[in-house]
Amino acid sequence: MRTVVNIILVALLASSLSAVQAQASAAAPQRVEDKKCGEFSQAGRYDCFSKLHAKSTVSLKKAEAAALQKIAQWFENDRYKNIARTTMRSAGVAFVRYREAKCAFADSLRGGAIGNAHEISRLACLGAANTERALELKRYTDHFPPD
């Protein structure tokens, strides 16, 4: 009898967790880029995502430059500053490879989509990844002295 009660409790717990996860994913906000560009036709979406991708690329370059500048101002031994700069550049190269692979995978999930759908998907992914990386660099170097 005890085993049956335990099985029922586990089943109830699993079903309630599934319901909570379903509600959380349904309530999760769309990416900002999707909200900004989602109202356009396919051609308009392509133009919108192209602009957002270009803007995110500039933002990422600025974030990288700001991070390097903060490292240069870091009140730390030059040896550690050099290590930080080198590893940041290495991480940047790895990020580019990761971003390309991630966005290629996301695009592959579009299947036989027609028109600009594949390119729109790729641009949206690249823009989002750039934005995430820029925020990550800022978060890592926020504790450094101001510019």
Rank of each mutant, 00 (worst) to 15 (best):
Q30P: 06
Q30L: 13
Q30I: 04
R31S: 13
R31V: 07
R31G: 11
V32G: 06
V32R: 12
V32Q: 13
V32N: 07
E33T: 09
E33N: 09
E33I: 14
E33H: 03
D34F: 06
D34V: 10
D34W: 06
D34A: 14
K35C: 02
K35Q: 15
K35Y: 05
K35V: 15
K36T: 11
K36R: 13
K36A: 12
K36G: 01
C37A: 06
C37P: 00
C37L: 11
G38K: 07
G38Y: 10
G38P: 00
G38W: 07
G38N: 10
E39M: 08
E39F: 05
E39L: 08
E39V: 13
F40C: 03
S41G: 11
S41A: 11
Q42M: 14
Q42Y: 03
Q42G: 05
Q42T: 11
A43P: 00
A43T: 12
A43S: 13
A43Q: 12
A43E: 12
G44M: 07
G44W: 00
R45V: 05
R45E: 14
R45F: 01
Y46C: 01
Y46T: 02
Y46S: 06
D47T: 12
D47L: 08
D47Y: 00
C48A: 05
C48E: 03
C48R: 05
F49D: 01
F49Y: 13
F49E: 08
S50V: 05
S50Q: 10
S50W: 04
S50F: 02
S50P: 00
K51C: 01
K51L: 06
L52I: 04
L52A: 10
H53D: 11
H53A: 12
H53W: 10
A54N: 12
A54Y: 02
A54C: 02
K55T: 14
K55L: 08
S56Q: 08
S56Y: 01
S56P: 05
T57G: 10
T57Y: 04
T57F: 02
T57H: 07
V58R: 13
V58Y: 04
V58G: 03
V58T: 15
S59Q: 13
S59C: 01
S59K: 12
L60S: 09
L60N: 11
